[in-house]
């Protein structure tokens, strides 16, 4: 087994939030006496990551993914438990530690808005004390992988969201970190840009051997990049293991979305799977994964004259996890203990 770079044991984070009821009276009262409520964002998780792994961190909004990444990168102080990254305690934020990590958040920027990215990169070079030859080599590599050449000399505020994300990636990686924490790196990007970013992350990991822990609520990101996934929900780790096992286990069905022609209002669809939504001409049917191809084929043949459009999709990850969490939790226990 290669070197352990992330070691998380019984890690917890509790936020303190102020609470206030509606209305003027409550507002006035809260000036003098604040009421607090504790919110457990991460409740005792354990996992380890070895050097060079690409691990996907899956879960719906508010599951605790970002909180965990912030604890691992040193922004947040854990309420209890322990996180060690590269053998260090992240919250101390020792400069030597910070030089070896990066945290990229899809919705945050670290570039100076008004100046071209290449000027921001120079500042980063000096802050991280990157020697000139290594800086040039890394920048050349990033420029090639991300096709940055036409973007570097434009002020950042004139870049599109997708362009800016590419430049942010370069800014976050120009110091060649050994570990990259990527939080929703494809958030808000169009599909082709998502694909480009994924290709980049995969290629970057292959070339540099950097360890990558990536959160996303797009299943596609994770499928494309990660052999191993961690599923977190309500702050608890539900699954830690191979992605291939996860897909079948957590989403043993596919969604077939149909658009029917006007004449087909009353047509019976129950024979193909469970109809979960029916809104005029649009219908969603849940079909077991292992017979998806066969049943969809049958459906197309049977309904062909009335069928305007059809698509077969994986269910959204939030729905899958929520479903698993509420109804099938027991089936996950063996997987957790197996690892």
């Amino acid at each position: 087994m290669s070197e352990l770079v992330v070691d998380v044991r019984a890690l917890r984070k509790v936020y303190r939030v102020t609470e206030r009821e509606e209305g003027l009276r409550a507002t006035l009262r809260s000036v003098f006496r604040r009421r607090y409520r504790d919110v457990e964002a991460v409740s005792g998780i354990d996992f380890q990551i070895a050097s060079g792994e690409v691990v996907g961190f899956l879960g719906p909004n508010g599951a605790g993914k970002t909180t965990t990444l912030k604890m691992l990168s040193g922004l947040l102080f854990p309420t209890s438990g322990e996180a060690r990254v590269l053998g260090r305690i992240p919250f101390r934020r020792e400069h030597d530690f910070l030089r070896q990590i990066t945290l990229l958040m899809g919705n945050r920027t670290q570039l100076v808005w008004d100046i071209p990215a290449q000027d921001s990169f120079r500042v980063i070079q000096v802050i991280y004390a990157i020697p000139e030859d290594r800086y040039r080599a890394t920048l050349a590599q990033l420029t090639e992988l991300l096709e940055l050449a036409p973007l570097l000399s434009k002020p950042v505020r004139n870049l599109s969201l997708g362009e800016r994300m590419k430049v942010e990636f370069a800014a976050g990686l120009i110091h060649s970190p050994r570990i990259a924490f990527l939080d929703e790196p494809t958030l808000g990007l169009d599909v082709s840009m998502q694909v480009r970013i994924r290709q980049f992350v995969a290629e970057y990991n292959k070339r540099t051997g950097a360890t990558i822990l990536l959160t996303s609520h797009y299943m596609d990101d994770v499928v494309a990049l990660c052999k191993r996934v961690l599923v977190i929900h309500h702050g608890k780790l539900l699954y830690d293991g191979d992605l291939s096992a996860l897909a079948g286990r957590m989403a043993p069905y596919k969604l077939v979305r149909l658009t029917l022609r006007g004449t087909a209002n009353g047509v019976a669809l129950d024979g193909y799977g469970e109809v979960t939504e029916r809104d005029g001409q649009r219908v969603t049917i849940r079909i077991p994964r292992d017979s998806a191809a066969e049943r969809t084929g049958r459906l197309v043949r049977d309904l062909e004259p009335q069928l305007a459009d059809i698509s077969v999709e994986d269910p959204p990850i939030e729905e899958v996890i929520d479903r698993v969490f509420t109804s099938e939790r027991s089936t996950l226990e063996p997987v957790l203990t197996a690892r």
């Binding site: 912030k70 990168s73 040193g74 922004l75 934020r93 400069h95 030597d96 910070l98 030089r99 990590i101 990066t102 945290l103 958040m105 919705n107 945050r108 920027t109 670290q110 980063i124 802050i127 991280y128």
Partner: peptide, 12 residues
């Protein structure tokens, strides 16, 4: 705006 967090993660 959350701009401070990235700065806190730089060695400066």
């Amino acid at each position: 705006q959350g701009q401070l967090s990235p700065l806190l993660l730089r060695p400066l």
